[in-house]
């Protein structure tokens, strides 16, 4: 008897425009302080659009590409299933409601933002938001710094932006070739 042929990797079902729209809509409107956690749960655990491995693969690319990571992910998944119009459906689902909400909040800020009470609350909110970014940055940097070679390069980028005030493109032009050279030697 021959061995059973390896199970073909199941072809992921083709998602409709409506599924793309509502899926990203549901992730967008509950994604306070960042959509990545809820989007990952929706795509991998709840709706099973992709395996965890496939998700990580695509998301790492979206992180390295310019643009907002999650918006890029919506573009890529939408296009994979329904081409250009699928990308539009996914991105519109992700962004339409949050954009409306944030502009309402912004209008409220323009109207009431100068009141002392609002000023104090917003100062606290901004301090907390800065802390959130710092905490998330540490979370992201942790596994990257597990490879010690990465630390000096990261610190160089940090110093060039924060202390030398170089613009991003100039910083990248300086650091990326060095980083590519080191990565190539290590590979």
């Amino acid at each position: 008897m021959t061995n059973a042929p390896p199970a073909p990797s199941p072809e992921p079902p083709r998602l409709s425009h409506a599924q793309l729209f509502t899926g990203f809509l549901s992730a967008g409107v509950i994604g306070f302080g960042g959509v990545l956690p809820v989007a990952r749960r929706m795509i991998v655990d709840e709706k099973r659009w992709m395996s965890q491995v496939a998700f990580n693969d695509l998301f790492s690319l979206c992180q390295f590409m310019p643009g907002a990571n999650i918006v890029n992910l919506a573009f890529a998944i939408g296009a994979r299933h329904q081409g250009v119009s699928g990308a539009a459906a996914a991105v519109l689902g992700l962004l339409a409601a949050p954009m409306a909400i944030v502009m309402l909040l912004g209008a409220a800020y323009a109207r009431f933002g100068t009141l002392p009470l609002a000023q104090h609350a917003l100062a606290g909110l901004a301090a907390a938001a800065a802390g959130l970014v710092l905490g998330t940055a540490l979370r992201i940097a942790g596994p990257i710094f597990a490879n010690r070679r990465n630390i000096p390069l990261s610190l160089a980028v940090f110093a060039l932006v924060v202390f030398v005030h170089l613009s991003l493109p100039v910083t990248m032009l300086i650091v990326v070739p060095v980083s590519l050279f080191l990565a190539r030697r290590a590979a």
Binding site: V133, A137, I140, A141, S154, L155, L168
Partner: peptide, 9 residues
Amino acid sequence: PVTAGLILA
């Protein structure tokens, strides 16, 4: 490492 440095910055 570039990504980590940029986010920390």
